[in-house]
Each structure stands twice: as structure tokens, then as C-alpha cells.
Design a binder for these strands. Sequence first.
DNA 1: TCCCAATCATTCATTGCTGTATTATTTATC
DNA 2: GATAAATAATACAGCAATGAATGATTGGGA
Lengths: 142, 142
Amino acid sequence: MVPNNASMNLTTLLHTAGVAQAGVEAKLAAVGLSLAKLAALQALIDAGDALPLNQLADRLSCVRSNITQLVDRLEADGLVRRRTDPHDRRLRLAVLTPAGRRACDEGTRVKASAERDLLCSLSRQEAEQLRTLLGKLAGSTA
Amino acid sequence: MVPNNASMNLTTLLHTAGVAQAGVEAKLAAVGLSLAKLAALQALIDAGDALPLNQLADRLSCVRSNITQLVDRLEADGLVRRRTDPHDRRLRLAVLTPAGRRACDEGTRVKASAERDLLCSLSRQEAEQLRTLLGKLAGSTA
DNA sequence: TCCCAATCATTCATTGCTGTATTATTTATC
DNA sequence: GATAAATAATACAGCAATGAATGATTGGGA
């Protein structure tokens, strides 16, 4: 009887992702950001500093109501401002503020550094292997 | 100038974990469960059908207030009952109901099946590789 | 024995995400 | 040009998790 020791399973994947996320999230928190907030700011910069909320939702692959709340928090932080689109009054633009741009710059540096710390336990070949395996997993399920 | 194409990063890991979790979670939802609920029920069975809430929190590696709410929901579902420990009236026991045991059995089957579907895109060697790499990542960060 | 510190559960506020209404506004159709 | 269908944002409720504060209970030390 051969025990099926320590086989790959969902728990391992979720746990590792959770640990990794918690680490980065903690470092971002020291700058007043979260991964969700940083992703939104980055999406705005990529789009030229402003985006209608529905397009922001598309870019962040999440639901519109989530963006409404995320932008609420970003607005409360002074990192983003809401403006109405004169061409289509249904649309609400999220516009990056100067503080938002600064926060994004700093957050990007913090995140990159945290990511390096995380990935430095893997050799270049291992990192590449991991990327490939994760791609297969996500690709089959998508 | 060589572009650093498609390198391993945090986003890839989080995205894959998210996709995998969403898949399993969707199948569990069809049975009225979630990963969080199933994990709690399983922990109770492992402990002989009852546990004080603080020990449940330890086993699920989360904070006590989270368990209070999770057990609230499980109790509302009729899968768990709260009882006071006569030996220490500070303690609140979470006790599995017959319905809870049945739900756990079914949920375990559903989860195992979903996990097989997920992992079938990887060969045995690849699955083993992935487990090792994830272990290195989580281990270094823990 | 009385009191203080530790322990336990709960409540509340916050983040982040989902899905389902609901309400504006636009656009296409008649 | 009025109206119906589509689209946008929001409000609201629910799940999951965290942290801080609060109230009950226990146990050890003076």
C-alpha cells in the first residue's frame, strides 16, 4: 500500500497564492494602498489618466458594482476624481489626481520590490516552469 | 533590445488561483456549500463532530471573529448547532448536525471531482513539479 | 477571598468581491 | 417625434476575511 503522499491539490495552490498576496498586500498597506487600488490606478495611467467606470471594470476583469465601490474608496483617499462625460451623460469618468499618480508610482515600486523578494526563492528556470504550469492550469479552466 | 516577455509574476499566480477557486466554488454552490463552509465542516468531523470556536479558528488558520460569522451562516443552514461547554462557560461548541454530516460528505465528493477536473490538464510529473515549486514559494515567504 | 490578567465569543467597521434590482440616459424603431 | 430596448452607474444584500473594542468567565496571586 503506497501512501499518496503530499500530492498536488487545490489547497496548496490557494494557500501559496494567499501567502504571496498577504506579503505584498502588507507592504502596500504601508503606503496606503492595496493590490485592488493599485491595479485601478495603473489601469487609469495605461488609459491616459481617465476611464469610464465600465471600461475600468473590463480592464480589471470584475463586475461594475465592485468598481463603483473601489472608486468610492479611491475618491475618499483623494487619488481619483469622478467626472461626467459631456458626450454621454450615462458615463462617469474616473480621473487620476496628481496624488493618485504619485501613489501609483510609489505603489508600483513597492510591489515590484515585494515581487522580487517573493520570486528570488526560484531560479530563472524554475520561475519559467512555474509560469508555464500555471498557464496550463488556468488555460484549461478558463 | 530583448523584451522581457511573459515572465513569471504575482499576477499570474493570483489569477490562476482565482480561476481555479472560482471553478470549484461554483460546483460547490450547486450543493449549497462554499470552500469556507466545507473546510469548517471537515474540521469538525476530523475533531469528532464538535469543537470550541477558538480551536476551529486555529484549524482553519483564521481569526476568531471570522469563525463567529461562518458558524452563524452554517447554523442558519442547519449544518451546525451551537452548544455551551458545561466545563468552561466561556467556550461555545460548534456541533455538527446530521444534515451537516451529509452536506460534508457530498461536498467532499464534489470538491474531489472538481479538483480532478482541474488537475487533469497536468501530467503526473507536471503536477509534482508544480507542487514542489509552490512549496518553495510559500516556504520562503512563510 | 478578592481582584487582576488572560481567555473567549461577539459586535462593529472596513476591504473586496459577487449578483440582483433600480434609476438615468442614450439609441434604434416605428 | 414618441416609445421600447440597451447601456451605465448605483444601491443593496450577501459571502469571506481582518482588526479593534466590548462583555462574560475563568484562574492565579496577593
